[in-house]
């Protein structure tokens, strides 16, 4: 009984999200759309907090103390930061906020992998064949959330640094393309080893986290400052995908749908922004040329 009510309430917040985003894409309704989307988020968070009551499971007060304090601190910091930021510094602020969302996806993936019960580890890959839920509670979703969250986090920090000038634009890794590809291959190999291993290897988990964070740096650092808004939009899309994958871990519809809405629209928005700047997404992502092309 409880689960149906929870899922139905989540469905209502999904509808509110969609109406809000639709409003945001029209100049006449943009401001209202933003408020509507915010209300949808408020409802979704409220449902998540009330889930134990609705489902009739007992939860210790200590956990709520942790949650409420964390929410209060986060909301306070977010509110103050958004009020104080100069109008010209908005894009870098968005980048920073986006990175923090990515960091949360990374932390969720990390903890879920760390806590993975040994009895569930056997046949993680074989689970594809017989298991009813590959996604829910799976190592695959956790690894993916960890990776994409980490990339979004470190990438957004680099973008933030480049925009506010604390990172010089011309600082680049040598042979960025080769480093990029090598890092990505390392991520795949590490992910495979974690998924295929017979028990959770904590060292591998730490190494995967570090390599994923490094990939974000390697991915963004060759791209020139002029292309940063496009990159932020792309990383925003990554955070959305990270939220989706983290939602798959828990089989939570609001995270899955809310995340994929941002993920899909973020990719399209990235392409539209590239078109508005007369650039192709490929040329931005391959980077390196970005700096010279935009400053020329």
């Amino acid at each position: 009984m409880g689960k149906e009510i929870i899922d139905f309430l989540y469905l209502i917040s999904i509808i509110i999200f969609i109406i809000g985003m639709k409003g945001l894409s029209n100049p006449a309704t943009a401001r209202k759309g933003n408020l509507v989307a915010g209300a949808g988020m408020g409802l979704a968070i409220l449902i998540a907090l009330l889930t134990p009551m609705l489902a009739g499971t007992a939860v210790s007060m200590t956990k709520y103390v942790f949650i409420i304090i964390a929410m209060a601190i986060g909301s306070g910091v977010g509110l103050v930061a958004s009020k104080r930021v100069a109008m010209t510094a908005m894009p870098e602020m968005v980048s920073l906020f986006n990175g923090l969302g990515g960091a949360t996806a990374m932390l969720i993936g990390f903890i879920e992998l760390k806590n993975y019960a040994p009895e569930g580890v056997a046949g993680k890959l074989a689970a594809v064949a017989g298991h009813a839920d590959l996604f829910t509670g799976s190592v695959f979703s956790s690894v993916f959330a960890l990776f994409i969250g980490a990339v979004s986090f470190s990438g957004s920090l680099i973008a933030w640094g480049k925009l506010n000038g604390s990172l010089r634009d011309n600082i680049k890794l040598p042979v960025p393309q080769i480093i990029n590809v090598t890092t990505l291959i390392a991520v795949f190999v590490l992910s495979y080893l974690i998924m295929a291993g017979n028990e959770m290897n904590f060292t591998l988990l730490i190494v995967l986290t570090i390599v994923s964070l490094f990939y974000g740096v390697a991915f963004v650092s060759p791209i020139g400052g002029g292309d940063m808004p496009v990159v932020i939009s792309l990383l925003n899309s990554f955070t959305g995908i990270g939220a989706t994958v983290a939602g798959l871990i828990y089989g939570n519809n609001i995270m899955i749908v809310g995340g994929i809405l941002v993920g899909a629209s973020g990719i399209l928005l990235t392409i539209l922004m590239c078109e508005a700047m007369n650039r192709s997404l490929i040329s931005v992502v391959i980077g390196g040329f970005g700096a010279s092309a935009s400053s020329a």
Binding site: F17, N236, G240, A243, G247, Y250, G259, G266, L269
Partner: peptide, 13 residues
Amino acid sequence: GSNAISGVVVIGA
């Protein structure tokens, strides 16, 4: 705005 929506990951935490 969509960046704020991707903060829905808070539910997971």
